[in-house]
Design a protein around this nucleic acid. Structure first.
Ligand SMILES: [Zn+2]
Ligand SMILES: [Zn+2]
Ligand SMILES: [Zn+2]
Ligand SMILES: [Zn+2]
Lengths: 142, 142
DNA sequence: AGCGCTTTTGCAACAAAGCTGCATAAGTGT
DNA sequence: ACACTTATGCAGCTTTGTTGCAAAAGCGCT
């Protein structure tokens, strides 16, 4: 991990009014070094040092609240998370991109350049958020 | 539950080459009497008689495989299931509709008449399935 | 209706995911 | 360096999901 990234992590945390702790920095480093989305179990495995499970849950929840990461719905047993690259802020996410789940390698990735299309709901429905998850085979696995 | 529905459940099971058992009939009844999608815990609660948890898991998996129900991705801890009304068959789902999760009442529903829009993936990606989950406030809750 | 074969169910035991309360540790501002 | 606030780790618990195996139920046939 470069010093540059380390500096930007510190900055990011400060901007979100979060104190700079070991766990938070390490988890953000993991996100930045990983291409795809991470599920909870990744954190205990990937981190050289192991964090307490509870701490990981709480950290992820905090990051979600602050608009640092977003969650990706799945039909399997664990939720996935990815860094917000858009201008997300506290209680206000703007991640209008499509997510892709590869059936070969299992990786879930953000397709940042693929916008979610407009959806026309029936009358009487108020739309707050749209999640699009495409499954198939990714460009690495074909 | 009307005799008519009971008959159609029997027919449905037979058409899927599944033997007609108490559990399967009761779970299908639950689906037919419920507007929205059901999560696993619903079955133990909603059913007057309680089924063994394992049986419910296995039954749902069977129904999924046979194209009788489809699963709906969530960012919360449990997967939801709903009846397929399209022409789904074994290993071949065609549920190209949008799902709606109400933030007020918590219900997840199939918007059968709202088609999932076309998505254009980057080069090199093969698309097998698209899941769209919209969250907001439903027509009942406003 | 009875018989044998296959499928389904229920139980026990386990594994993973997720939550809560509370005491200790660490970070922050002065 | 100190006091104050926030974050972490631990213990213990709940919920969700899985596996193996024996008993029970369903099905086809006579
Ligand atoms: Zn976001
Ligand atoms: Zn994303
Ligand atoms: Zn509602
Ligand atoms: Zn549906």
């Amino acid at each position: 991990m470069s010093n540059k990234n380390k500096a930007s992590i510190t900055e990011l945390l400060r901007a979100s009014k979060l104190s700079i702790t070991d766990t938070r920095v390490k988890i953000l480093e993991l996100f930045m070094n990983t291409n795809g989305a991470l599920e909870h179990s990744s954190f205990e495995k990937l981190a050289g040092q192991s964090f307490d499970r509870v701490t990981v849950y709480r950290t992820l929840q905090t990051f979600l609240d602050k608009g640092i990461i977003h969650s990706i719905p799945t039909t399997d047993t664990s939720i996935r998370y990815a860094l917000c690259k858009s201008d997300c802020s506290e209680h206000d996410h703007h991640d209008h991109h499509v997510h892709f789940k590869c059936e070969e390698c299992g990786a879930t990735t953000c397709l940042e350049d693929t916008d979610v299309p407009e959806i026309h709901l029936p009358k009487g429905y108020a739309m707050h958020n749209v999640d699009v998850v495409v499954s198939g085979v990714c460009n690495q696995c074909r």
